[in-house]
Nucleic acid binder design. Structure first.
Length: 764
DNA sequence: TGTGATAACATTTTT
DNA sequence: TGTTATCACA
C-alpha cells in the first residue's frame, strides 16, 4: 500500500485513495493527472479488484499503453495486461465484435474510416439523384456524423430539418445507414451508437442482457479527458456506471478543445448533478512548467467567461520569459523557430527530442519542415497523411478487408480494378444497380454476375477471375500465417510490380511503403501470435495520429495543437499566432463567441505543454493558398503579454537589411489595401505599428468590398441576386481581385461560397 | 475501358 | 500552391 501512495502530494493521495462511489478529479495542466489515474488503478487492483473488472477509457491508444506500462511497474505485468484499457472506440469495437450477432452484424464487421464514409455517402447521393455540385458530400458527412454524435436518429433528423440542405441530409442519412448495414460495416460514430443499441437490448427470461452483464462485469470505471466526451460517450458511461456508480472521471474544462466534433463541456460541468454524492478532488499544483509559463497561460485563459474557477500554482523556478517573435513571413518564422531550438538545445543541454513545434493547421508544417531540412535537423511529424491512409497502403488493406468481410463494398470498389483488370466503372454501375434491386451486397451481386443485365461477356470473365482469386485466398487463410497470406496476395496481384514499371520517385516511395507495411504486419503477428487479421485491421483503423508517431528517434516533433494534448516537452514553439489563422477564421463569416473561447483553450493547451521554455511566433505576411496574405498578430498575443512574463522581439531585429526590406514590403503592400481592404473578412491595419494597440476587433467581421463592376459594393448584409440560387443575403466577403469570394445565405439553398468573378451577383 | 489533360478544390482541428 | 475530380479522347 505504501508503495502506491508514497511520493504523492496530499491532494493526489486523497484523489487516489477514495475508491468508491462517483468521483470527479479536476486536474489542471501538468498536475500529475496520469499519475493519479495509474496509482488509483494500481490501488484498486492491490485491494483485491480483479483487473478485468476495471474499465479505463483514454483519449488515445498511446495514452492507454503508457498507463498500462506504468501500472505494470506498480503491480505486475500480468495484472496490468488484463485491465480493460483503451480508447472508447477500441474498447467498444471489441465488445461489439463479441455481440455482433445480437445487433445484426457478423463479428468480422469492417470499420469505415472517414474516407470510406465519404465515398459511401457519395454513392447514396448518386442513387438518390442528389447533385454533388449543389450539396457538398463532405458537408453531408459531417452533418450526419454530428447528428450521430448527438444521438439524433434519421427519423428525428427528418423532423428537425428546416432548410433545403437539412432536408437532403435527412434523405441521405437513413440510406447511408442501410448501406453500412448491408456492407457489414460501421463508421466511427457507429462504434458508439451500436454500443448504446446493444446495451439497450431487452433482457430475456434466460438471458439478463448485455447491460446487466457489463454493469456486473465492470465494477470500476475510469474516464480520462472527460471534458472531451460527446453525448454518445456520455450515454454509454451513464449506462455502464448504472447503480454501482463506481465511476471516476478526470478532466479539465480549460482544456476542452473538441467541441467542434461534438464534445460537450456540459458533461463535466454537470457531473455532480448527474451522479449524486460525487466526491470532487482538485489537483492544482503544477509540476511541469516554470512560473512564467504558467502565468502567461493563466492570464490567457482568464479571458474566457465559461470556466470553473481554479487556481493553478507551481513551486517550480520562475524561469525565462515566454518569448514572442515577430517574423516577416512563414519562411522567416521557420528560421526563427530553428534558431530558437538550436539555441535552447545548446544552452540547456537538451536533445532534439525535447523540442516540439505546434501549429494550428497541418498545412503550416510544410514551411517549418523546409526550415528544419535546410539546417539538417531531423524531425518527426505527427499526423499529416498518416501511413495507413496512403493510397498504396489502403489498396493492400482493401484486399485484406475484403477477405475478412466480403460484404465490405468500399473495399470491393477500391480493389476490384486495382491494378487494372478490365472491370470498369460501367460494369460496376450495373452490378450496383442489381445489388440495390435485390437488396444484396456488391459481393453477392458479383456471385450472381451471370444474371446481372448489361454486363459485357469480357467483363463477366474478368469478374469470375477476380472472385476465384478471392476464394483462393479465403481458403488459404486456414493454411497460411496471416503475414504469409498478405505477402503472397501482394505478390499475386502484382501491386508491387505495377509500381516498379512506373519507374518514378513517387512509385519508388510507394513501393517502400508497401514493403514497410508488410514488415509491420510480420512484426505484429510475431509479437502477438494469437492475433487474427480481424484484430490487426481493427487496430489499424482505430490508430490515432499520435499513436503512429515514432518517439524513439532523436528528432524535433511537429504536430497540431490538438495532437499535443496530454504531452509535454522541455521546449515548445507555437507558430502562426495570427488573426484568421489562430484564432482561425471559419469560411462562413459568422462566428460564435464560443469558438473564440475554444481557440483560446487550444492555445492554453499549447502553452502548458512547455516545461522550461515556451516560444510564440507570428508572421506579418504568410503564403496561404498560393497567395501572400497579410495578417495581424493574434489577439491572444496581447492577452498573454498582460501577464508581464513575456518578451517581444522581431526575428529580423539583429539584421538591419532584413528590417529595411520588411518595412519596404510593408509600404509596398500597404497601398494595395487603401480604401476598405479585406482579407479573410477582416479589415487590415495599414501600418504595422498600429497593430499592437489596434486590437479592438468586432466579433462580427465588418466587410466591404469594391466589386469589379464599377459602382457596386458588396457589404455584409447586402441583398443580392444569383442566376440559379435566387435572392440571398451576404454573410461575409473575403479575398480581393479575382480571388474575391462571398458567403451568401440563400433561403432555398442554404449557405454558399461564391467566387465573385464567376457568380455574377446583382446587388439589390 | 484506360489515359492524360485540365478544372476545381482546399485550410481548422480527429476517433 | 498542391492535390484530386472530371472530361475529352484514344
Amino acid at each position: 500500500m505504501s508503495k502506491i501512495l508514497a511520493g504523492l502530494n496530499p491532494a493526489q493521495r486523497a484523489a487516489v485513495s477514495h475508491l468508491n462511489g462517483p468521483v470527479m478529479i479536476v486536474a489542471g495542466a501538468g498536475s500529475g493527472k496520469t499519475r493519479v489515474l495509474t496509482h488509483r488503478i494500481a490501488l484498486l487492483v492491490e485491494s483485491g479488484v480483479r483487473p478485468w473488472q476495471v474499465l479505463a477509457l483514454t483519449f488515445t491508444n498511446k495514452a492507454a499503453k503508457e498507463m498500462k506500462e506504468r501500472i505494470a511497474l506498480l503491480v505486475s505485468p500480468e495484472l496490468a495486461r488484463d485491465l480493460w484499457m483503451g480508447t472508447f472506440h477500441s474498447v467498444f469495437a471489441r465488445i461489439l465484435r463479441r455481440h455482433a450477432a445480437d445487433i445484426g452484424y457478423t463479428s468480422s464487421f469492417t470499420i469505415y474510416d472517414s474516407d470510406d464514409s465519404l465515398n459511401a455517402i457519395k454513392q447514396v447521393m448518386n442513387v438518390l439523384g442528389i447533385s454533388k455540385d449543389q450539396f457538398n458530400a463532405n458537408a453531408v458527412r459531417s452533418r450526419i456524423s454530428s447528428a450521430k454524435n448527438q444521438l439524433i436518429s434519421p427519423e428525428e433528423y427528418e423532423r428537425l430539418a428546416r432548410d433545403l440542405f437539412s432536408e437532403q441530409v435527412a434523405r441521405i442519412y437513413p440510406e447511408y445507414n442501410r448501406a453500412l448495414r448491408l456492407a457489414n460495416a460501421m463508421d466511427f460514430d457507429d462504434l458508439l451508437l451500436k454500443t448504446i443499441e446493444l446495451l439497450d437490448l431487452p433482457a430475456t427470461p434466460d438471458n439478463a442482457g448485455p447491460l446487466a452483464y457489463y454493469q456486473q462485469k465492470f465494477k470500476y470505471i475510469l474516464v480520462d479527458e472527460y471534458q472531451d466526451t460527446n453525448r454518445a460517450q456520455y450515454a454509454i458511461i451513464k449506462r455502464l456506471a448504472g447503480t454501482q456508480g463506481n465511476l471516476t472521471v478526470v478532466g479539465d474544462d480549460a482544456q476542452s478543445i473538441y467541441a467542434f466534433r461534438g464534445a460537450d463541456i456540459g458533461n463535466i460541468l454537470d457531473f455532480e448533478r448527474d451522479y449524486p454524492g460525487t466526491q470532487i478532488f482538485r489537483l492544482e499544483q503544477n509540476y511541469r512548467s516554470t512560473k512564467n509559463i504558467l502565468a502567461a497561460a493563466d492570464e490567457l485563459i482568464k479571458n474566457n467567461k465559461d470556466q470553473i474557477p481554479k487556481t493553478l500554482f507551481t513551486e517550480n523556478v520562475r524561469g525565462e520569459p515566454v518569448k514572442i517573435t515577430q517574423c516577416l513571413d512563414e519562411r522567416d518564422e521557420a528560421s526563427a523557430i530553428v534558431r530558437a531550438i538550436e539555441e535552447q538545445v545548446r544552452a540547456l543541454k537538451l536533445d532534439l527530442k525535447d523540442c516540439a513545434v505546434l501549429y494550428r493547421t497541418n498545412a503550416q508544417s510544410r514551411a517549418i519542415e523546409d526550415g528544419l531540412r535546410r539546417q539538417g535537423i531531423p524531425y518527426n511529424i505527427v499526423g499529416g497523411t498518416a501511413f495507413y491512409k496512403r493510397k498504396e497502403i489502403k489498396d493492400v488493406l482493401g484486399y485484406v478487408r475484403l477477405l475478412v468481410n466480403p460484404n465490405d463494398s468500399e473495399s470491393l470498389l477500391r480493389v476490384i480494378n486495382t491494378p487494372p483488370r478490365g472491370i470498369g466503372a460501367t460494369t460496376m454501375e450495373h452490378v450496383a444497380a442489381y445489388a440495390r434491386d435485390h437488396r444484396q451486397s456488391l459481393m453477392s451481386a458479383l456471385g450472381a454476375i451471370d444474371f446481372v443485365p448489361g454486363v459485357q461477356s469480357r467483363a463477366i470473365q474478368r469478374i469470375h477471375e477476380f472472385t476465384r482469386l478471392l476464394q483462393k485466398y479465403t481458403a488459404l487463410r486456414d493454411k497460411m500465417s496471416p503475414s504469409e497470406l498478405v505477402r503472397s496476395l501482394v505478390d499475386e496481384t502484382n501491386l508491387l510490380q505495377e509500381l516498379k514499371l512506373e519507374n518514378t520517385i513517387e512509385a519508388l516511395s510507394r513501393r517502400e511503403n508497401i514493403q514497410e507495411f508488410l514488415s509491420a504486419i510480420t512484426d505484429y503477428f510475431h509479437e502477438k501470435p494469437d492475433a487474427t487479421l480481424e484484430s490487426f485491421l481493427e487496430e489499424v483503423s482505430l490508430l490515432s495520429e499520435v499513436d503512429q508517431s515514432d518517439g524513439t528517434k532523436n528528432a524535433v516533433t511537429l504536430m497540431t495543437l490538438h495532437s499535443a494534448k496530454g504531452l509535454e516537452y522541455p521546449v515548445v514553439c507555437i507558430a502562426g499566432l495570427e488573426e484568421g489563422l489562430f484564432p482561425s477564421q471559419p469560411v462562413g463569416g459568422t462566428r460564435d463567441p464560443n469558438d473564440i473561447e475554444e481557440e483560446r483553450r487550444l492555445l492554453y493547451v499549447g502553452i502548458t505543454r512547455a516545461m522550461r521554455r515556451c516560444f510564440v511566433f507570428y508572421a506579418i505576411e504568410r503564403l496561404r493558398f498560393g497567395e501572400t496574405a497579410r495578417a495581424l498578430p493574434s489577439r491572444f498575443i496581447e492577452e498573454i503579454e498582460r501577464s508581464g512574463t513575456t518578451e517581444h522581439v522581431t526575428s529580423f531585429g539583429t539584421k538591419p537589411h532584413l528590417r529595411e526590406s520588411a518595412s519596404e514590403r510593408t509600404r509596398e503592400i500597404s497601398h494595395l489595401f487603401a480604401g476598405s481592404p479585406v482579407i479573410n473578412g477582416r479589415t487590415f491595419a495599414r501600418k504595422r505599428r498600429e497593430t499592437h494597440t489596434a486590437h479592438s476587433f468586432e466579433d462580427e467581421p465588418r466587410a466591404s468590398y469594391s466589386q469589379i463592376e464599377e459602382g457596386t459594393t458588396l457589404e455584409h448584409g447586402a441583398r443580392v441576386f444569383h442566376e440559379t440560387f435566387g435572392e440571398g443575403r451576404v454573410i461575409a466577403v473575403a479575398g480581393f481581385g479575382d480571388k474575391a469570394k462571398a458567403t451568401v445565405e440563400f433561403p432555398k439553398f442554404g449557405r454558399k461560397n461564391l467566387m465573385l468573378k464567376f457568380a455574377n451577383l446583382k446587388v439589390l
